[in-house]
């Protein structure tokens, strides 16, 4: 097999073969893996860190960790899932080391009730389908702004559970919180996120 095939990513390589070559330390397989997943990993890291520089550092650290530990990869998941988990753990550690700055209060974003415990919020009016709403450029901006407006403890749970698709138990493990705290935070995060998306619905 020519080195060119490995480094230009014009063809895909069977995962089993790729892992074997990574384990044997072939530089061309390292380059192949970085070219194949580098940008996808960067997009995820950017979502967590909200910083280009931190996202780049996280991707770099992820690859170093992956290459140094590839022989420990047990193939219980795909290589991508394993790498993504490493990246997210590194991104979470990076966030822990940063000063949080001013955050919105979650209580200001939660549902409101009257004295009879009945809802007092304005209902969403769906004048367009979800697919149409999603396809609009301003929707992307509003969703991104909403995600970054959530207080960090809630944003992380929402990203891990609803965007990455980890289970409540996995989220609890990754954030080192109890399962019940994970569930409570998820509910508040979803309620707050819904409130922050109101500009999309003309509310």
């Amino acid at each position: 097999m020519s080195d060119n095939k490995w480094t230009n990513n014009s063809e895909d390589i069977p995962e089993e073969e790729l892992i074997t070559r990574l384990c044997s330390g072939e530089e061309s397989s390292y380059i192949f893996l970085m070219r194949k997943y580098g940008r996808r990993l960067y997009a995820i890291a950017r979502r967590y860190t909200n910083s280009d520089e931190d996202a780049k550092d996280c991707v770099q650290q992820t690859y170093i960790q992956v290459f140094n530990n590839i022989h420990k990869f047990e193939k219980r998941s795909s290589l991508w899932s394993w790498m993504r988990r490493i990246l997210i753990n590194i991104s979470l550690k990076t966030l822990q080391s940063k000063h949080r700055g001013q955050e919105l209060s979650i209580s200001d974003l939660l549902p409101e009730y009257d004295s009879n415990n009945c809802r007092t919020e304005t209902n969403w009016q769906f004048t367009e389908s979800i697919d149409v709403i999603i396809s609009k450029k301003e929707s992307t901006e509003i969703v991104q702004k909403a995600i970054y407006s959530l207080p960090q403890d809630y944003r992380l749970v929402l990203l891990l559970r609803d965007i990455e698709g980890y289970s409540t138990e996995e989220v609890a493990t990754m954030l080192e919180i109890s399962v019940s705290a994970s569930k409570t935070r998820l509910h508040r995060a979803r309620a707050a996120f819904k409130k922050l998306l109101e500009p999309l619905m003309g509310v």
Partner: peptide
């Protein structure tokens, strides 16, 4: 609206 916001977040 609650379910739609989850769906829109994931899709975007």
């Amino acid at each position: 609206a609650y379910q739609s916001s989850i769906e829109m977040g994931k899709a975007i």
